[in-house]
Design a protein around this nucleic acid. Structure first.
Length: 448
RNA sequence: GACCCUAUGGUCUAGCGGUUAGGACACUGCCCUUUCACGGCGGUAGCUCGGGUUCGAGUCCCGAUAGGGUCGCCA
């Protein structure tokens, strides 16, 4: 029987990076084994759950490329879904839970208590045969020792997590439950419930948690804890996915950057590490740079234009060839697409804002006449190409008896407003003679 | 408080009884480049501690310590 795994998030309005990693590992296992990846929405808390909150989950998974074989098609709980074992929204499965609770009640395995229904939990230690952690004997804690039974239906009639989770996993024929290690202690309850229903529990694989860089638990409030931080932060999904694969899993051959297809091929449950891992933002950023540098031209342009427009820069008024030439000079220079507006905005702005700190250093009186000489040289440069501009600048420097850098820095500042950016000669060529001369003239006015 | 999991440089990891303990990120020195990146060549830095087992222990066992998790009418 082919494995059936699921990702079962609760629509809280956020998709936690840890949840995304859990989804990824489930997806990887399904793809590796040729099994089925199911998405189930645990929206039992009707007051808190909204369609928008479900969209956050669907959008996040889609952005990562984690397609599901069964589950909702849209965020509408009553809408269409794919798969034969739905509904895939818990809010639509009340009848299933009611029937299961009835069964427990009638067999004396559950009982009413102060309006709620409690499950009669065994007092014997339960051994969890975990595929990642190994055999774990879960004994009762002191509090549980006082009363091991736990609520499965609240006094308001709503079934609780432990019950619905088990019922759904049972009825959806889940063969493996891959989830965060924070559920390990709860697993004894779930196993007891499966036994009460007279079925064999699925195989469990509890994966380590992702911690903050300081080793503390990552909560929604922490930097980088939410998927939106990456989706809106100019990251490439393939970089994030690659990074997430490297947390608690390793290809074991000293490689860091590897295509997803290869991870799918090599991924398996027993080789998952057991220790929690800290999120290393620097390493993710490095991977991001690796992927950004190798992007296909069209995707690169598209992501760039999108980043510019998000920053309020309209590129539509510029010729396509100009846009492409401009963006080409940024290739391999930026990592995050959110950096682009600040890095290449000068190509698309009428007047550039000069960095005042740099101006103090470069726009000094003795440079004024030098820049004027260079401007005149540029005015005569034809064709206005990077190679010719380099010759013009260097020979002007020689004539003036100064190093090239003396002209390079003020020119860059005049034309881009910044001290760092694309290759100077290439950027000047793209900008074109008219803009370059205009910007140099404007800068010359500014000299103190 | 009880129960459970974990422990290789700052971080992610390779290691599976005998290695000069390997790689990557970060940091750093030099080269390349008159910007910034990229790239190339170096460097600093590690087996938590204490007992066993063994000829021999990062590797196996026990304990301590530390970190994380769980004990809800949250999920």
């Amino acid at each position: 029987m082919k494995p059936r795994v699921r990702f079962a998030p609760s629509p809280t309005g956020f998709l936690h990076i840890g949840g995304a990693r859990t989804a990824l590992f489930n997806w990887l296992y399904a793809r590796h084994t040729g099994g089925t990846f199911v998405l189930r929405i645990e929206d039992t808390d009707t007051a808190r759950n909204t369609k928008a909150a479900v969209d956050v989950i669907l959008d996040g998974l889609r952005w990562l490329g984690l397609n599901w074989d069964e589950g909702p098609l849209t965020s509408d709980a009553t809408g269409a879904s794919k798969g034969d074992l739905g509904p895939y929204f818990q809010s639509q499965r009340k009848e299933n839970y009611r029937r299961r609770v009835e069964a427990l009640l009638s067999r004396g395995l559950a009982y009413e208590h102060e309006g709620a229904i409690k499950f009669k939990m065994t007092r014997e230690p339960i051994v969890i045969h975990d595929l990642v952690v190994g055999d774990v004997e879960r004994k009762l804690t002191d509090r549980e020792d006082l009363d091991p039974d736990f609520v499965i239906v609240r006094s308001d009639g709503e079934p609780v997590f432990h019950l619905v989770n088990v019922v759904d996993d049972l009825e959806m024929n889940m063969t493996h439950v891959i989830r965060g290690e924070d559920h390990l202690s709860n697993t004894a309850k779930h196993i007891a419930l499966f036994r009460a229903f007279g079925v064999q529990p699925p195989k469990y694989a509890h994966i380590p948690l992702i911690l903050n860089s300081d080793g503390t638990k990552m909560s929604k409030r922490d930097q980088g804890a939410l998927m939106t931080a990456y989706m809106d932060g100019g990251y490439l999904p393939e970089a994030l996915v690659n990074y997430l694969c490297l947390l608690s899993w390793s290809p074991k051959d000293n490689r860091e950057k590897l295509p997803l297809a290869e991870v799918v091929e090599r991924f398996d449950l027993p080789q998952i590490l057991r220790a929690n891992a800290r999120f290393d933002h620097d390493k993710l950023l490095w991977l991001q740079g690796e992927y950004a540098r190798e992007l296909e031209p069209d995707r690169f342009y598209e992501l760039c234009v999108h980043a510019l427009s998000k920053a309020g820069m309209d590129t539509n008024t510029f010729p396509v060839a100009y846009i492409k030439a401009a963006l080409d000079t940024c290739r391999g220079k930026i990592k995050l697409f959110t950096e682009l507006p600040g890095y290449a905005g000068f190509y698309f702005e009428e007047t550039v804002e000069i960095n005042p700190e740099a101006a103090k250093k470069d726009f000094v009186p003795e440079n004024k006449s030098r820049l004027e000489r260079l401007r005149d040289a540029f005015a005569k440069t034809e064709p206005f190409t990077a190679a010719n501009l380099e010759i013009a600048l260097k020979s002007t420097a020689t004539e003036l008896g100064v190093k090239a850098g003396v002209l390079v820095h003020p020119t860059r500042l005049a034309c881009t407003g910044n001290t760092a950016g694309p290759s100077l000669y290439h950027l000047l060529e793209v900008l074109g003679k008219e803009k370059v001369l205009a910007r140099m003239n404007r800068a010359i006015e500014l000299f103190g």
